Simulated scan of single mutants.
Amino acid sequence: MSYLERLDLYIQFGNNTTIIDGNYLKRKIINANTLRNLQEFRFSITSRISSPVQLNLPSTKDIEQTFTHFKSKNIISCVDYFPERKEGQYHIYSYPYETKYYNDITNKFPGGIYEYVREVSLFDEKPFEHEFFLQIQKSFPFMEILSVKNKKAQNHKESNENLSLIQYSFLRELHIYNVHDDYIEEFLSDKKTSLSRNVNLNIKYESLERVTNNFTREDTRINCRKVDKLYVCKGSKRCNFLEEYFPSAKIIERSRF
């Protein structure tokens, strides 16, 4: 391994007690001889660490400085703290980013273009606003699978006239079963979003019923007609108008998501 000239490293640590940064890699994974010969280092490292207070967490600048001896031109890092979970999250990676997955994106997402990414997941304890989703669509133009987890209501529900329509041209799977109703409206209203045809939708039936006003709402009808497969929880008491509202969809019950 001492003569290695290129190294691709993609790792994720959960429930960790140590921050995985450049210093850790030099101590535990990449020895000094390898580091001297290394000409190209592409990586993505995500680590989560329990911390009762945010003040104990290092800054993005602190983490990036630990990679100064690595052969990577552009390094991007994100540091988040989730007070409800009492957990810190670190994601540091070389850019351009060449993996197919980008997980647990928060409101601190730094932007950029990620043309290799096909699967994206979003999570935060703070609300996602419409402009955030617009940025996600622009940053991941070939995204095929999107999962959203956010229980916080949006703060800025602007009038429809002021919104830029978001088009998800390649999206084939949308998972919005663990979200506030605002995000269901965000994706189903044709005033805010244009879904691709033949998309698979994973959602809680009760939330869907509320947002569509018992399957009578007009501005959510167009996107619902584009759904190819609708996944709902098994045992949900279904309205007679569900099939009419999703005329192209095969409705599939799942025991859990």
Rank of each mutant, 00 (worst) to 15 (best):
residue 6 R to P: 14
residue 12 Q to D: 11
residue 12 Q to I: 12
residue 14 G to S: 15
residue 18 T to R: 14
residue 22 G to L: 03
residue 23 N to F: 09
residue 24 Y to Q: 05
residue 24 Y to E: 07
residue 28 K to V: 12
residue 29 I to C: 02
residue 35 L to N: 02
residue 42 R to C: 11
residue 42 R to W: 07
residue 52 P to W: 06
residue 52 P to H: 06
residue 56 N to F: 08
residue 61 K to V: 10
residue 65 Q to V: 13
residue 77 S to Y: 01
residue 79 V to G: 00
residue 83 P to L: 00
residue 88 G to I: 01
residue 98 E to F: 11
residue 99 T to Y: 05
residue 102 Y to E: 04
residue 104 D to K: 08
residue 104 D to F: 08
residue 110 P to W: 07
residue 113 I to P: 12
residue 116 Y to S: 15
residue 121 S to R: 01
residue 122 L to Q: 00
residue 123 F to K: 02
residue 130 H to R: 07
residue 131 E to S: 15
residue 135 Q to R: 05
residue 135 Q to T: 02
residue 140 F to E: 04
residue 151 K to R: 10
residue 152 K to M: 11
residue 158 E to G: 11
residue 160 N to C: 09
residue 163 L to I: 06
residue 175 H to W: 04
residue 181 D to F: 04
residue 183 Y to L: 09
residue 186 E to I: 03
residue 188 L to H: 03
residue 191 K to C: 10
residue 193 T to E: 03
residue 199 V to D: 04
residue 207 S to A: 09
residue 209 E to T: 07
residue 211 V to C: 03
residue 214 N to I: 13
residue 219 D to S: 05
residue 220 T to E: 13
residue 226 K to D: 08
residue 226 K to L: 09
residue 227 V to Y: 04
residue 228 D to A: 14
residue 238 R to N: 13
residue 239 C to H: 09
residue 243 E to S: 15
residue 246 F to G: 02
residue 251 I to N: 06
residue 253 E to N: 12
residue 254 R to N: 10
residue 255 S to I: 14
